[in-house]
Design a binder for these strands. Structure first.
Lengths: 123, 123
DNA sequence: ATTATTGTATTAGGCGCCTAATACAGCAAT
DNA sequence: ATTGCTGTATTAGGCGCCTAATACAATAAT
């Protein structure tokens, strides 16, 4: 799971989302230490300032906290991580449903289309 | 169905998507005349230049064509409209699935979560 | 013919995002 | 004590997006 950045949205916003994702997916477990800003920036091929900005966003959210000189750490509050994960799930589902409804699909048709695509996937 | 613009992405790109949606959903039927740029711009609370840019995008795509002075018209090629609609559907499903898979859901769990949210919806 | 309406083009300016290059402060390791 | 690594702040510049204000060309409407 690497870094996927597109140019049609602010990079720092995309970084926030992907960091959230990585934390919720357990790539950066609760309590663990994050790689330093400069390294994360290098990984993502991004300016350190931009990565810094993204990390600051996660801190406001409470997902990260900083020990000024020894690094940045993922929260140990697993409940919080789960809350964020649930929030993300709900957002993704809502967004998906909205778009499909606007295209004229009803609930059943949405499920059918999804199932069909999953079936394709497996081949 | 009005205009929903957020500030975290280029407006002209959002306009393109929403115009595609409106055309695919039948709000602007094949062969029909589009409202003038200035009016669409007013509707969307956007600068005419920005709306112009979005419309130019739809023209490259073949969804619209222009009679220089009498206005802009939706293509009469219903097949093309359907193709675009199918493309949009596939894109939305793929994007949704990607995000959910990254969050650790498998196919069955994705369906279950979707169904659960639909059920909520109905109350 | 005149007028209004259409799409289109141009210029200027503001603003946010991103990069680059530094510099500093504070703690850990040696 | 010194060195290195950490987060953090600052400045400068480039670039794209967006708005605003015009202006023009070509057709439709009168």
């Amino acid at each position: 799971m690497t870094w996927e950045l597109s140019s049609d949205r602010p990079i720092y916003a995309q970084l926030i989302e992907q960091l959230e994702l990585k934390i919720c997916a357990g790539k950066y477990p609760p309590g663990s230490r994050m790689p330093p800003v400069r390294e994360l920036a290098r990984e993502a091929s991004v300016n350190p300032n931009t990565m810094q900005r993204a990390l600051a966003g996660l801190e406001e959210e409470g997902l990260l906290h900083t020990h000024r000189t020894s690094g940045r750490f993922v929260t140990e509050d697993e409940k919080l991580v789960m809350q964020v994960k649930n929030r993300l799930v709900r957002e993704h589902i809502r967004e998906f449903m909205d778009k499909m409804l606007r295209l004229g699909f009803d609930h059943e048709e949405i499920k059918a289309a999804l199932s069909a695509m999953m079936k394709e996937e497996k081949e």
